[in-house]
């Protein structure tokens, strides 16, 4: 039998994988991908809670799913802006490695 805790554990492990990616990798594009993993882990736990907290009619809590919808929209906009910044950075410095981008002004 699958419980709420199983989904929360999977979501937690996925979040930690994304977190480890942000901590360990130095390629900006991989860091952005790891951020996406973390956002999706949060979405998974939100949807699991939405299914768990049924309302008086017995349906899942749809307020939470609307919230997940907003998160997905904002994440897509964030990826577009982030990748545009990476492209602009690559044009200026010819690198996407965070080790090479250590000065505040150039």
């Amino acid at each position: 039998m699958i419980t709420l805790g199983d989904y929360l554990i999977v979501s937690g492990i996925l979040f930690v994988i994304g977190f480890a990616g942000v901590m360990l990798r130095r390629n900006l594009i991989i860091i952005l991908m790891s951020l996406e993993l973390m956002l999706n882990a949060a979405n998974l736990s939100l949807v699991a809670f939405s299914r768990f907290r049924v309302d008086s009619t017995g349906l899942p809590n749809y307020d939470v799913q609307v919230f997940v919808f907003f998160i997905i929209t904002v994440a897509a906009a964030e990826v577009a802006v982030g990748l545009a910044i990476i492209v602009a950075l690559y044009r200026a410095r010819q690198t996407t490695d965070v080790k090479d981008i250590s000065s505040l002004k150039f």
């Binding site: 039998m1 699958i2 419980t3 709420l4 805790g5 929360l8 299914r51 768990f52 049924v54 009619t57 017995g58 349906l59 899942p60």
Partner: peptide, 11 residues
């Protein structure tokens, strides 16, 4: 404590 409960059935 709620993490050990199964999901409630749908109508």
């Amino acid at each position: 404590t709620i993490a050990h409960k199964a999901f409630p059935p749908l109508p």
